[in-house]
Design a protein around this nucleic acid. Structure first.
Lengths: 123, 123
DNA sequence: ATTTAACTACTAATTTATTAGTAGTTCTAC
DNA sequence: GTAGAACTACTAATAAATTAGTAGTTAAAT
């Protein structure tokens, strides 16, 4: 999957959230200062060319929706991040999580449940 | 902390690993095609200006070392990632990573112990 | 002692990313 | 029917990031 620039990423986050969007919808979601309509249109055209978005003509305006799933993009990103920050050491990563977060009892047991149930499914 | 560009990030990863480095050391660690010496020097100067690196004159060449700790940078990044990919939910993020890994029973209980003991210390 | 390599500081060029202008179309409302 | 808003496709300008050139210094090697 092609890398996204910061602006492309920002716009994709919006479209993933909305699932389908016209350019005006994207602009609406963008924070101030709102970019020019054509600026957004340009980035979106790049995203189509990159194969991340597809466009459909609804009436006479384009509606855009993701081709690449959010989860795919996320996984791509996290693979790199995990390696970059934890050198593929899972225990290190977990130690980090445990230290950084102030887990409530609920969160902790929820977490353990999730891990356990997941473990069971796999074995 | 100031955001780092891709190249800046790449060079910082190397210097964090080496702890101290001359420009030649950084180039050595960079993959082919090796950039021009001055290209690396420019980026490093930017990093000094951003306050991420400091330089020391050793003989008559500069040696560079991090001002910002790797852990600080990592934590900054992970905070963003949590927000971007997991709706700011820590358990979701952790569940994701847990699923990615094939935890052995030992690892799992070790993990739980770590989190629990940490919890105890804090309360 | 002169050549070479690695450095210095500084500047300039190139590439990539982002923003937005121009010109023309369609639709809606007065 | 004409004015305005929102769109189209295309192009151009600007800004940010990256690469590398110039000129001069230092140190070591033949």
């Amino acid at each position: 999957m092609e890398k996204l620039t910061k602006r492309e990423d920002q716009i994709m986050q919006i479209i993933w959230k909305l699932e389908k969007a016209f350019i005006r919808d994207v602009i609406e979601q963008l924070p101030e200062p709102k970019p020019h309509y054509n600026s957004v249109a340009t980035i979106i055209k790049i995203l189509v060319k990159k194969g991340v978005l597809k466009s459909e003509m609804i009436g006479n305006t384009h509606q855009y929706s993701p081709v690449v799933e959010f989860e795919t993009y996320r996984d791509d990103n996290l693979t790199n991040i995990k390696k970059k920050f934890f050198g593929n050491s899972f225990p290190k990563m977990m130690a980090y999580f445990a230290k950084e977060e102030n887990l409530s009892e609920e969160e902790l047991s929820e977490l353990i449940d999730v891990i356990k149930s997941n473990k069971t499914k796999k074995s």
